[in-house]
Each structure stands twice: as structure tokens, then as C-alpha cells.
Design a protein around this nucleic acid. Sequence first.
DNA 1: TCTGGGGTCCTAGGACCC
DNA 2: TCTGGGGTCCTAGGACCC
Length: 425
Amino acid sequence: MSHVFCMVNCNNFYVSCERVFNPTLQHVPVVVLSNNDGCVIARSNEAKALGIAMGEPAFLREQFFRKHGVRVFSSNYALYGDMSRRVMQTLAQFCPSMEVYSIDETFLAFENPRPGELTALGRQMRATVRQWTGIPVSIGLAPTKTLAKIANRFAKKHPQYEGVLDLTAMTPAEVESLLDRVEVADIWGVGRKHTRMLKSFGIHTARHLRDAPADWVRKRMTVTGLHTLLELRGRPCIELEDVAPDKKAICASRSFGKSVTTLFELREAVAAYVSRVAEKLRAQQSRAGRLQVYILTNPHKDVPQYSNAMQVALPRPTAHTPELIAAALGLLERLYRPGYVYKKAGVMATQLEPETPRQLSLLDPPEEEDARRMALMTVLDRANAKWGRGTLSYAAAGLDRPWRMRQASKSPRYTTCWGELPVVG
DNA sequence: TCTGGGGTCCTAGGACCC
DNA sequence: TCTGGGGTCCTAGGACCC
């Protein structure tokens, strides 16, 4: 049995989501900013053509945006998350094995396809997603995930492929000349450090890496680098993760929208983040054995710097918000130093373990207390799911939250909020 | 006074991903 | 005024045990 991996990637996903609900954004430069309106994290083709780079700080480009009529949006994750779900549901109809890899990417695995059949199927998938969701996608097919990613890039970048490229339908010589045109930096799994290292040894393209000695790569780039090399040779090492494994760490962190100096404000922020972590723990039916809190000043600014983290083993694994808030605030008291301007705080839960199902009849008193507390958490989660995040929250997390992130240019939550539905007429 | 080896578990740090 | 957030995996090294 052999299968062909398929990578489906949404083109300029966040921008495409904005365009679905706002036709005036077609054919003009559009960018979407990160949380806190910090830097550029999505660009339309027109914005790319203007030379706007991924990750550029937005405040350095404000003049430029105005001058070139660039339409700027804060990120709207309620919208993008919902659109992503629609795209994935559409794709799932074409293939039983699917791994949703990120908000805008998914792998599919086709078993024993007939030669050449997948290009046509890819075209059909692409047209269907476009028609049902409004989102344009590109599709790459190959014998390994790493090669499917490469095929996907070509499908997206070169219009002659009409959005679909199947490496299994090409000759070895054709694949080779394609790998000649891929820089090592653009290979999935090769980052900045390894790029610099490889180039210093004269390895510049995917073909060079494919043909490098395996044991040398193993030594220099660990076993993950070896897997990349083997996958470039067409030997699958990275399997499809059909069922998403439980997360091993869950965190929540944010930069502040305004400067924060007092312990009071930090307490509110940390309590809010830890509430979020607790929700995620319960959503995965896990409890945390350890909790970490960190705070830091703005490393980009020329001000006195302080950054520190502390963690604690919890008395018992828990997903109970008040217990976690108490632990986090205890850590914060010890971390806090007055006299600094804080920019960011974060909370991370680790040593997660599954919430064990309990038999009600066998409860001893402490477990009964535990069950009662978790029942309250369930009520809270249901209310927040139904009426929106933050409907019920702990007072420790603050009310007006002046430290909240900035989102000056957010579009409506067109699809997930009754009050923000687009009006036709 | 000086001297082992083998194994496990945990954490920190680095590299990577989107 | 102003530079994102949330994860994974691998390895080295320390602590501890026999």
C-alpha cells in the first residue's frame, strides 16, 4: 500500500477571510495585523508586491500604508477560526484521512490513487472550497509531507499550475529541476539557524540538501533534520496525525495595550490569562500538575529591563480556575519588582494529565468537594460558550481591563455573532 | 584518600512550525 | 503610542538510584 500526501493551504488566509465579506477589498493591497496591532501577519498579493514583509512592525509603516492606500485590519480570530472550520469541513468530504495542521493548512492522505487522478481531484476540491466558502486554496501532492509542502508552494506561486501540482505525476528529472529552484530556507523544518549553517557549507537548495550525506546531516541537525532529508528523497518519515494528540502544555499570554507598572494591574492580567488556560485545560479534559508565570518589560524599548519566570508544582493536578488563580498570583507576588514598565505577562500549564473519570458512588469527601467544584466550572464554561467568552469571569481578572490589547481596526464577527451579521440591502 | 558504571527522570534551552 | 501568540520536538546535563 502506498499513499500520496496532499497539502491544502489557504492563500493569504486572513486577508481572504476579510475579502469574503467586504468586496471593496478585491484587487487592492490589504494587510492584517497581529494581536495588539503589532506587526503584519497576512498580506494580499498586492501588498506583497508593494514590498511589505511578513512580521514587519506596523507602526513603522503607517505613512507608507496611507500613501499606497493599503487597507489595514486588526486580527479577528473569531471570524478566521469559523472560516477555517468551514474550509476543513468541505475538504473532509473528499478524503477520510485528514490532519488539520494549522488554522489555514491541512494534510490529506490518499490511499492507492490511480496514476494522474489526483490532479483532477485537486482541481475539484479547490473549486468546491472556493464556491462553498469563498476562500482560494492551493494544493500540493507528493509521496511525503515535506515534498507536498514544496509542491504546494509551486502551485501557489506559479499560475500555470492553476493551483494544483502533483509531484507523483512528474518524472524524476522534472522533480529534480524543481528541487533545484527551492532555497533551503523555504524547506519545511529548516529554520534560520540551520539555513545559515547549511549555506556556510555550500548547501543552498533543496536538491543540495537531498543529496547531502545523511550521517552528516544527522549530526548537524539532529534526527529531525535527517527526517527532512529522507523526505526530500521521497521516503516518508513524518506520518499523518489523523487524531490530534492531547496538548502537553497550554499557555496564554498577551502584550499589554498600555504600559503597566502596578502589581494591581498585573494581578488582573495574570488572573485573566490563567482563567483562559483553565478553560483550555477543561476543554481537553486535562489537569495541570505545574504552573508557570512570567512577566517582562519591553525589550524593544530603551528602558530598564526586567524579565523573569517562576513555576510551582501544584499540590494536586487541577483545572479548577480559583485554585489556579491562587497559585498564579502567589508566583506573581514573588516575581514582581516595582519601578519597571511591564509589557507582557504569560501563564503556562505543564505536566498535564487526563482528568480521570470518577465513580460517584465511591466518592470520599474530598473527591465529592472536587466534583462539586468541577460542576461549577462546567456551568461557567457552558455559559461562556453560549453567550460569548467573558460572560462569566472571576473578579480577580478585572472589569474594565485598561491593559487589554489594542485592536483599532477590527472587522465585524460576520459569522459568529448575531449582532454583527452583514446586512444585505 | 581516592575511586565506578549504568540507568532513569526531569528540566532548561534551542530550533522549529504556523 | 508603537515590534504576536501558541505550540512541538530534541538534546544535554543535573539529580538521584543501585
